[in-house]
Design a protein around this nucleic acid. Structure first.
Length: 156
DNA sequence: GCCAACGTTGGC
DNA sequence: GCCAACGTTGGC
């Protein structure tokens, strides 16, 4: 069972927003590496929801993939900041998935604490200069991240 | 195909 | 607000 990590700026869309809306299209990803990971996701996969550009930055909760990859609706939306004039009309360039909330962390697990976990040392998240906004997470990374805030991954 | 310039991300 | 690191673009 694969696990993932999704970055979002909470000033734009944070974990509490996901809880409020119940389900959200994860659109606006405009990086090919991140897009390819979106396309590998399956319904039911669990995702760590990471707050970037925030105080504090860190993992705020767990989400679940509710729909596998389909064409990103904003690539053809000329009014959107995510509009892509080079995107073909069939919507094949950029993809999105739908996600839904599973569990809010009792506290945000901050990046410096994630870095202190040995299991996370190989993750792109903890590498200097990494800007990848969608990345795979190992079962071990997932487990220890939840354990760090007192949650049991096996109970999900 | 190379690579300099540019725009963006995201931690601090 | 700063700026290092990164991905993309476009001239050649």
């Amino acid at each position: 069972m694969p696990f993932w990590l999704l970055k979002s700026e909470p000033d734009v869309f944070g974990y509490p927003d996901l809880v409020r809306v119940g389900r959200e299209p994860w659109n606006g990803v405009r990086n090919y590496t991140a897009r390819n990971f979106l396309r590998q996701m399956a319904v039911g996969d669990l995702c760590l929801f990471y707050h970037s550009n925030a105080k504090p930055t860190g993992i705020a909760g767990v989400a679940r993939v509710a729909r596998e990859a389909y064409p990103d609706n904003l690539q053809a939306d000329r009014a959107s900041a995510y509009h892509d004039p080079k995107a073909p009309a069939d919507g094949s360039r950029w993809s999105m998935v739908d996600v839904e909330p599973v569990l809010a962390f009792p506290r945000v697990l901050p990046l410096d604490e994630i870095r202190s976990l040995p299991e996370w040392h190989a993750s792109p998240l903890t590498q200097k200069g990494s800007r990848l906004s969608v990345m795979p997470v190992t079962g071990e990374e997932f487990r220890v991240a939840l354990a760090a805030v007192g949650l049991d991954a096996d109970s999900l």
